[in-house]
Amino acid sequence: MKHRLITRKQLNELLDRLAQEVCLYAPVRDKTGTSWAEIRRADEACLDEVNTVEPAKGFVFPRCEVLLRFDPQGNPVEPEPPPQQVVFGIRPCDARGIAFLVKFYTQEGRTDPYVRARREKTTLIGVACTRTAPTCFCLGVGGSPQGSEGLDLLLVELGEELLAEPVTEKGERLVADLPPAEEKHLTAAEEQRKKVEAEISLRIDTRKLQELLPGLYDTPLWQTLALTCVNCGACTFLCPTCHCFDVTDETVRGRTVRCRVWDSCQFALYSRHASGHNPRHDPASRYRNRIMDKFYYTVEQAGMVSCVGCGRCIISCPAGIDIRQTVGTVQNSKCKLKNEK
């Protein structure tokens, strides 16, 4: 699909039009930075922050979602299909998170019809990063500040104009009438990519990690790494790829709905059997599960590392735990373990 050029004015017109036709979401300014909200006009969108406080995963996997309603006779009724929505201003790391979720939820075997329907009804317009935060490390886990994975359309800001890279048919339709980009625009975007990528020095050898982690299940390292972890679950709720949920029935004024809500493997009750037995009863085993899941388990399950390097878990951790340090320690531990023997 051809790269196109769109001016800021044209982009605003496009967004204003979309806001009339469908639900349009974008980052908007709030007390904590920016957060996702429905907008009516293009100028409500705010791209000043490197990223939103919360990831964009809720657009395909909402924090709380009705799976079924029960009619007065107790018969289950499926909810209405989700509405068409356009998400503007999603960053490449979060788009990769959505790509992971969609793959995990819709791969062979049992497909989750809710995630699938939401992704089908959603158009994702990404905006590439022109700068990074100190906690960003997308490049270290195979992403890029200009990555387009998971998106329908990627925009790269080049001053008063933006380079538009359609990724899917859906994205192509949005920009089909615009003039093609010229060589100089592609070059400018490429230079910008290199400049932003140069701000990220961390590299994680995810292949090596995958090889190491199965052998590191029993290392005492986890106790040390998780020493300060309070198992609050903030890292998992803010993670663009964490997919765990609980299913619960809620009855309000005699009407019952069955919903699913985000859950976290960091909680003790998460894995507790009805008998009281808990295979991951100690906090360190739950911390280990999170790291193993990101860099080993999901590779086996869905063929993807499930850390996109957004850095939210680092920002939000009340105990100051940094996943980059954990991974670094784990990567170097093999030699230590060997020496110990």
């Binding site: 995990f104 939820y105 075997g109 049992r110 989750d112 299940y217 997919h243 765990c244 949920f245 609980d246 299913v247 699913r260 859950d263 493997c265 998460y270 894995s271 507790r272 059997h273 009805a274 295979p279 599960n289 193993m292 899941d293 080993y296 388990y297 086996e300 399950q301």
Partner: peptide, 24 residues
């Protein structure tokens, strides 16, 4: 095995034993 389960189809995460889901 009888791990805790919420979905039964390998999505909710609860029942994992390492990379395997007991339900699936």
């Amino acid at each position: 095995l009888e791990n805790r389960m919420k979905c039964g189809i390998g999505k909710c995460g609860h029942c994992n034993v390492g990379p395997k889901y007991v339900c699936k």
